[in-house]
Write a protein that binds this DNA or RNA. Sequence first.
DNA 1: TTTAGGG
DNA 2: CCCTAAA
Length: 547
Amino acid sequence: MVSHKCVEEFSLQFPANARAPRSARKRRSFKEEEISENDRTCAIDLLATVAENLLSESEGDHCLVTQIHSVKEEFPVEEKPATLPDVGPYQGSMSPCGFSSVINGKVEIEAEGFSNSGAVVLDARPNGVGSLGGGSITSRTKVPSMGAAAASRGALDDVNMFSRDDDENFSGYICPRVTKKSPRSVPRVGDRRIRKILASRHWKGGSRHSEAKSWRSYYLHHQRSYPIKKRKYFEHISDSVSDDYRLRSKMQRGSRTVTTMKGPGASFVSSDSHVRLRIKSFRVPELFVEIPETATVGSLKRMVMEAVSTLLSDGHRVGLMVQGKKVRDDNKTLHQTGISQDNTHLDSLDFSLEPSSEAPHLLSSNPLGHVCEELPICHASDMDTVFKSEHDLALYPSHSFDKETATDVSKALVPAAAALTELSPQPPRHKSKQQQQQQQTAQRRMRRPFSVTEVEALVQAVEKLGTGRWRDVKHSAFEDADHRTYVDLKDKWKTLVHTAKISPQQRRGEPVPQELLNRVLNAHGYWSQQHMETTLALPKPESVLLL
DNA sequence: TTTAGGG
DNA sequence: CCCTAAA
């Protein structure tokens, strides 16, 4: 039989092509992924050691990869955080609006249902791998209970939310990711950052030899190069800490006021209950900055500022969860959502920073906290390019770098710059629906060439699953690569098949090993055949059954 | 939402 | 990568 021959050629067992019903395609359960606390701790210690080594290693390099866990700024309790102290020369010159205006602007724009001015506080822990505490951050939050859009930004009906410093451990505000079924309550913080440190090391190793290649492929390459078992551990870590920067707020009993509202033709009185939220802080995901040792401190600060600004303006939004359930309907009132002063479960209210679109978050850290398919790293050279083009500033000596990368980065950052402009508070103009749609449709995703390792993973998955189950391929091999949709995988396979058929001279981009291309061809042939047989052979047995 | 294909 | 018809 042909198929049998194919199996032999592949030297791997193709599964029976029976496709399980979708209901049967269950996800891996938590128990499968569970790792004992001991193991985890050991591994974390191990990773911490690696992280330390990394620090000492970096001294010999031309470029320092500075991991900025986050940046912490504290706002005075009594003052409105109108400005941030000491943002350096960056403020006002590099960006259309200052940092604080980014925050405020962002918040005000989102004031539709939830105002949160000045509550974005970043928490800085440069290298403290183990320290989880000290997260007490003072912030002031306004949460109008209802009709926030109508409430002016002043402080009409807003309830001033304030928090006090206390000694609560920061980890207490971290709740497990809920998308994976039952939420675990084991708080973990350090492992995620350690993972990233590890990752940065790998990335660095790659860049040393080839500056021209994009860091994306490097990280992926190295990460995927781990043996399966270790990789699984990575995945587990990523699962458990994916919402590192999720925060939990506690609601306190608020004052009850009676408001008279007048409508056209009708008036009514509603008892307008207020709820009080106390938001400890927003943790901003980690940022990575690569900068030459010869760069000035000021330029470093500027890059950090840019990274933070971009993070906050490139499409992140505030997510809300009530008792583990995501609240998606922004039009619901708090009361309808269950956020009322009478609610007895007010402690299970979670906010999170999450990406609101496919907008590239180049300078930000992985917002979903999945396995870092990519580690956004802020290259000095890239920044240079952007600033040159956007602001005609030449603060850095020119760097030579991969043309394609530079282009992509520019493309990626320009929208961010535009976003900054939009957040500028002076003219409170609103985007028309047309403008919004234009922006949405005009958004083209950043180009992300598949690395060899990704191709390898894709080939392997297709060999196993076939060419018609891209959703399964995605989930089996690219579960954590959020930027790879199943359509992307399908498209890549298409081009791979094409690539395999043309002569090596005609191929472009990072060369795919011939061995892989052969497998592509083989698998393509096998599954094509399989398709033919199933489409032709299926009707027969059925007709037999009917007879 | 997922597949399948053309653009 | 995007867009979309079709399932």
